[in-house]
Design a protein around this nucleic acid. Structure first.
Lengths: 231, 231
DNA sequence: CAGAGAAAAATTTGATCATATCCTGATGGC
DNA sequence: GCCATCAGGATATGATCAAATTTTTCTCTG
């Protein structure tokens, strides 16, 4: 979370030496967040050891962490899998995000500097580029990063933690949605948000992000209903 | 989470054999939740191994889990400690609970059976008894159990998980509050809630629990301000 | 005799431990 | 005041043990 300044003369020495379980955690987290693991898929420790070329202990610890965050599920028999969402779960997630994201956006609006806004604008531009190019992975990464940056700007660590944790729960399903509908036809509601933030209008920012959240979650819900009908 | 039915003739064989990391986790969780670990206190792996008479590996895994849930904090230098809350954190927690708890109470009201209500009433009676007897630990346990039971009744696993996780964050501080003001002088707002639930009035239940949450969190906030002035 | 079903062996996977290695912060000499 | 050394503690490995699943085999019936 925090970078401790190092006395090494070089401008940026951001990785003094990261523990293995931490790097494994980040890799695994990305795997979940960007849909490299499908909903319902089984996950074995030893499989991950091979896939990530790591020892058992760090992998086990990273898994515990993800399980605690709800990103993975421990199904009675000690086996681990990617959770399958049902309509109720999506409803809960939509409800939670409809409340958290606008609040955080409002706080972020009050605190963001011009540099912060430039950063967000740049991420959004990258996001648009990814959409144009049909780069789904790029889209998912930028979209997450965009929202995550807002969480960080809100200066509310606990709420940001909670909001961030929700992404891990619908990440796998979000990927399925995108696989279905492609990257095109995703209306970009981020522009409204950026306008509101630049204007310092917290309420408008909150409303803009609420619309974005509802639209995204609604798509997940529909995709889910479609899967249920098919399977 | 789920009980697998065993074929052993006996009525209840609920613990076929729980993994060590799981039992350790529960013990540690209780330690945090009920204030056996003070805010700011350092926690060492080897110390816990001795205290709980366990091996390092299960303790490490339990710690990772608690850290992921925000119950403990990993301070850059690989050391682990109980987080110290500031006013901003308490504000976040109050904000989150003011939104989550009422919603869950409303859902619980719609779903609770007569037996469920009897169970809640019994817990509340135990709680009153603990207050009368000045049994702080008993009070904290029953209070948690009361709210937790409502979360479970709401049939909203994700939101319940989030709400439950918040308790781990203010557990240590709550204990400090009680140590300061004693168990007496704690107005019991649970009666209003139970009345509303029995009447099937979800909105009233939500309002009753909101009052309870605000009162509790406000006490934590004041206690914290007092500590800051003193220390 | 063929096939369904159950017992049992085998394999896969998870859990734990003891131990070795590496960091971090502190102590003491220069 | 600075660098070397040291102790306490965290991290990671590999081996070992236990549980669960899968596969195999055997038996009993139609």
């Amino acid at each position: 979370m925090q970078e401790t300044a190092r006395k090494t003369g070089s401008a940026a020495a951001p990785l003094p030496r990261l523990p293995a379980h931490e790097t494994i955690y980040r890799q695994l987290r990305a795997l979940v967040l960007f849909g490299d693991l499908a909903p319902g898929q089984a996950v074995t420790i030893q499989g991950l050891c091979e896939r990530l070329d790591a020892g058992m202990t760090p992998v086990r610890e990273a898994l515990r962490r993800l399980i605690a965050e709800g990103a993975l599920e421990l199904q009675g028999n000690r086996r681990v899998s990617v959770p399958l969402l049902d309509a109720g779960h999506v409803g809960e997630l939509m409800f939670a995000r409809q409340w958290l994201d606008p609040h955080l956006a409002e706080r972020a609006t009050a605190r963001a500097t011009t540099a912060d806004l430039d950063g967000l604008t740049a991420i959004d531009a990258d996001l648009d580029r990814a959409i144009q190019q049909g780069d789904m992975r790029g889209y998912l990464e930028r979209n997450y990063r965009f929202h995550r940056t807002i969480y960080d700007l809100a200066d509310a660590p606990i709420l940001a933690d909670v909001a961030d944790g929700l992404w891990l729960r619908f990440g796998p399903s979000l990927r399925v949605v995108c696989g279905r509908i492609g990257t095109l036809g995703l209306p970009d509601r981020h522009k409204d948000l950026l306008d509101a933030m630049r204007a310092g209008n917290g309420k408008a920012a909150a409303e803009a992000i609420r619309a974005d959240v509802v639209q995204g979650m609604e798509q997940v819900r529909q995709s889910l209903a479609q899967s249920a009908r098919a399977g």
